[in-house]
Amino acid sequence: MKQPNSQPTAALLLRETASQTAGPYVHIGLALDVAGLPERDEEIWNRMARPEAEGEHIEVVGTVIDGNGDLVRDALLEAWQADARGEYRPEFDLEQPFNGFGRTATTAEGASEWRLETVKPGAVTRGDGRVMAPHINLAIFARGVNIQLQTRLYFEDEAEANAACPVLNAVESPARRQTLIARREEVDGRVRYRFDIRLQGEGETVFFDF
């Protein structure tokens, strides 16, 4: 059996509980409305910013596509992002104007788009002092996905910041880096970014380990 990690204290560590797929009915637990269940008083969902939240209000939409080019219609996504000033705010409270955490899902019918209502995050400075371009962390859970896939959404109109971002630059292939860039659209005067996630094959989205 392979030794856990390469860390010297590994033998003294408890093993992490193993992951299992969230399965086709993940919505029952984490997206009650999608499952057809009555919602509770407070649910964690896709409206991360209320109108009074500070920053540029944006909508983020996309699809999830499998290795056959087919829509993944049962995916659940989780978003985690900094606020407009580039600060992560852990306190989740539906009473406050902005929450950095949100959930969304693709749909069984129609275009199967997931959607978030949020504000554009500010740039975040890393511990080594380097500045990461504005981004939203996304985790994808679904039937057939044995452990969540972790990616980052960056913004097309932040070209300069993107070019200097140490995380984007950790992706060696410039073509693959492009899979992390959301495209800006304006729809009825509102700013919308489109970010389609390809799980496998041509145009496969970059997924991270951390």
């Binding site: 008083d41 407070e42 964690i44 499998d66 290795g67 056959n68 087919d70 993944v72 985690w80 900094a82 992560y88 852990p90 306190e91 989740f92 409270d93 539906l94 009473e95 929450n99 950095g100 955490f101 975040v124 890393r126 511990g127 080594d128 380097r130 990461m132 981004h135 962390n137 679904a142 039937r143 057939g144 996905v145 044995n146 896939l149 980052r152 140490p166 995380v167 950790a170 992706v171 693959r176 799980l199 496998q200 094959g201 496969e204 989205t205 970059v206 997924f207 991270f208 380990d209 951390f210």
Partner: peptide, 28 residues
């Protein structure tokens, strides 16, 4: 058909993006 064929890109330097997360103490 739902598994990436490319390797995961490892983030060598952790940042607040990965080291923080939501605190749900105030979720009613």
């Amino acid at each position: 058909a739902r598994s990436p064929s490319q390797s995961l890109v490892s983030l060598q330097t952790p940042s607040a993006s990965e080291l923080t997360g939501p605190d749900f103490r105030r979720l009613r």
